[in-house]
Design a protein around this nucleic acid. Structure first.
Lengths: 229, 229
DNA sequence: ACTGCGATGCGTATGCGATACGCTAATTAG
DNA sequence: CTAATTAGCGTATCGCATACGCATCGCAGT
């Protein structure tokens, strides 16, 4: 992966005038694959299943995408075809907050995207468009461009990390600490046990974990800006 | 996954006195699988390859682990069998910094672990031990326990997000912005183009991205503590 | 020792997913 | 009308996880 993906993501899709015209298209394949992933999970995206949905033969797909792995990369980048989540605000903090929440929303809408995002890959046109846009907006409101880049990266890092527990299930904590039902385990993990005692304010903390963490990251950036100035 | 893993991770490994004694053991299988993953990547961990390494038949493995997916979970949790990365410090900030760096080191030593960590899963005994330990240490130096938990979660989120680009390759930036070699692309992404201009201080920023981000997160937590007090 | 239960080791068979190859069908340039 | 060119896709292959059932091995109880 890594290197060879460049051609795939950035190469142009040729549309020859000669020869048999294409019924399928890379666009349609990627869109249908995304529909499957959204509805049934990335695991259910097989070339066979995909071909059935498209009403075509399995091997026909290979005329439009090099292979399964590459298809997944295309699926991911196509998520960022639309407008980036940049709020109409004039303060960097609000812009980054909106950006972070937008990215979170993306992963919540397309849970399969997280595993793609956290795999080794190179940046595609969609992602580049989005990143370029935020950075442009941040510099427009006065943020130095190097700081803008690293701030976006930092926020993204936090968001990707923080989104995982959300995807694990709404119940969250209940299953997360399931083992603490056993008294022996409460003795083995006394601190975790404290947190699940009746009366502990953990529920609130866990529920708002994303918001809390994001604000802390923004606080940290703010302090850095104040200190540097 | 998710729910059914509980028994696997927390259930006791029976050692019956009757019947034929086991030559293989779950422990040995997991250890060998980890060795393969460390050396050749998680993708190369197949039941066949693993069995060859262990000098056993493929199906013998299934007497000790339920299946491949479960094996991977066991591999991950076994990473946290040793002592947690908690520095001998008395200030929460140093403790969390050391913890964050330690977790980062874990993922750098075992790159395959990141994809497991970012998949949906439940907490195993190893991870529980580590988390219990940090939280205990943080409360010991005066941090409220709810804050300790959410701070650890926040740091973990950042670390997991920030570690990915590191694993992608040492070159990092060069390949990351490969498409910007094309003048047409520099026009299409003007802000990213600025960042790769000769003279831009991006190299430094990207290189220290982890350290920078971690300090920002810690700054954010510090401000929150000051404000709350 | 002897025997039989209870557990392990593992060969074989199955089924699924990805994909290489090569033939067939559909257009269009000349 | 024909040759060139490209898309559609059936068939075959290969790797991988794993269900099933049999053979094997030792200890427990006699």
């Amino acid at each position: 992966m890594g290197t060879g993906d460049y051609e795939l993501l950035w190469g142009e899709v040729s549309r020859p005038s000669r020869g048999r015209p294409a019924g399928l298209s890379r666009e349609r394949i990627v869109a249908e694959a995304r529909a499957i992933a959204d509805a049934e999970g990335l695991q259910k995206v097989s070339m066979k299943h995909l071909a059935e949905r498209l009403g075509s033969g399995v091997m026909s797909l290979y005329r439009h995408v090099p292979g399964k792995d590459e298809l997944v990369l295309l699926m991911y980048d196509s998520l960022m075809t639309g407008p980036p989540p940049i709020p109409e605000a004039d303060h960097w903090r609000e812009i980054l907050r909106g950006w972070g929440q937008g990215v979170r929303g993306l992963f919540n809408t397309h849970p399969w995207a997280l595993s793609v995002a956290t795999s080794e890959r190179s940046m595609g046109p969609g992602e580049a468009t989005w990143v370029d846009a935020v950075i442009g907006r941040l510099t427009a409101v006065g943020m130095p461009i190097e700081l803008a880049l690293i701030s976006v990266l930092t926020v993204d890092c936090f968001v990707m990390g923080a989104v995982r527990p959300e995807l694990a299930g709404d119940s969250g904590e209940a299953e997360f600490f399931q083992f603490l039902a056993d008294p022996a385990m409460r003795a083995r993990f006394p601190n975790l046990a404290l947190l699940t005692q009746p009366g502990a304010a953990t529920d609130v903390a866990m529920g708002d974990h994303f918001e809390f963490g994001l604000e802390r990251v923004l606080d940290g950036l703010e302090r850095h800006i104040e200190t540097s100035a």
